[in-house]
Amino acid sequence: MHPDLIVFDCDGVLVDSEVLSIGGVVSVLNEAGVPATYPMIARYFGMKQADIMLKVSEETGHDIPLELSARIWPAIRDRFEAELKPMPGLADFLRRHPDVPRCVASSSGPDRIRNSLRLTGLAPFFGEHIFSSSQVARGKPEPDLFLFAAATMGVEPSRCVVVEDSRFGVMGAVAAGMRAIGFTGGSHIEPHHAQALAEAGALYVERDWDAVEARMFGG
């Protein structure tokens, strides 16, 4: 593959955050009387929060006001401060390829992305090359975020490789004309997930960074 730019999702790819995040969302919604469940929220992870809340509202029949949505990030942040970890093997992977341009393209907000990278010691690997769905009109699974990141970094989409753990992210990468590797190394991954990523268009699906490296730079 030998990309000119590696585009990393953050949650579930760089940091093992999805179980913590989903738990925070469910806790806040349940406390407000919204009957959300872990499987319900997990179905939509990879989308930006506003889109997830819309889906939950449609499923449960409960309105989710902005002030309730605003309580979600503080709840997740507390869990991150206590428990967030980087994906095993990721830092070594990044150190082995210092000359390959890289960036983050995440459905999370900029403050949350930076906080996750700071807590896990990954911030120096990315600097200011951080892109959020809040910067574009449409989030994943639309291609807007990936196209914005590639244009800002000055790389043609066809020369980018995206590493994603969600089918929405893979779909967005493919729609942008990029090659996608599905990543299944997070603690939130269930047995069917690899197949879902492949069906969404991932060229390969791998569960550790040595395997991702072999796909990306081998041969």
Rank of each mutant, 00 (worst) to 15 (best):
M1V: 12
P3H: 09
L5P: 01
V7S: 05
V7G: 04
F8P: 01
D9R: 05
V13Y: 10
E18C: 09
E18T: 10
I22G: 00
V25T: 14
L29Y: 11
L29Q: 09
N30E: 15
E31D: 15
E31I: 00
A32S: 03
A32Q: 07
V34N: 03
Y38C: 00
P39G: 06
P39A: 08
I41T: 06
I41H: 09
I41M: 10
R43H: 14
F45R: 12
A50K: 08
D51V: 08
I52S: 03
M53K: 12
L54M: 05
K55C: 14
V56P: 00
E59N: 01
G61I: 09
H62E: 07
D63K: 06
L66K: 13
W73N: 13
P74W: 13
R79H: 10
R79A: 13
E81K: 14
A82V: 13
E83N: 13
P88E: 10
G89W: 08
F93M: 05
R95M: 04
R96H: 07
P98K: 01
S108I: 03
P110T: 03
R112N: 12
I113S: 02
G121Y: 09
A123H: 11
A123R: 02
A123F: 10
A123P: 00
P124V: 06
P124Q: 06
F125P: 02
F126L: 04
G127S: 05
F131W: 09
S132N: 09
S132V: 04
S133G: 15
S133F: 02
A137G: 15
A137L: 14
R138E: 14
G139H: 10
E142D: 13
L145Q: 10
L145W: 10
L147E: 08
A151N: 13
T152F: 02
M153S: 05
E156P: 00
R159V: 01
V162P: 06
V163A: 03
E164H: 09
D165N: 12
D165Q: 09
S166V: 05
R167Y: 12
R167V: 07
F168E: 07
G169F: 07
G169V: 06
G169L: 05
M171I: 08
V174H: 04
A176Q: 08
G177D: 13
R179M: 11
A180I: 09
G182Y: 06
G186S: 15
G186E: 11
G186C: 11
S187I: 01
P191Y: 12
P191G: 08
H192Q: 15
H193A: 05
H193Y: 12
A196E: 15
A196R: 14
L197S: 09
L197Q: 10
L197R: 07
E199P: 00
A202H: 08
A202F: 05
Y204P: 00
V205S: 08
V205P: 05
E206S: 11
R207P: 01
R207Y: 04
D208S: 06
A211P: 00
A214D: 15
F217L: 05
G218W: 03
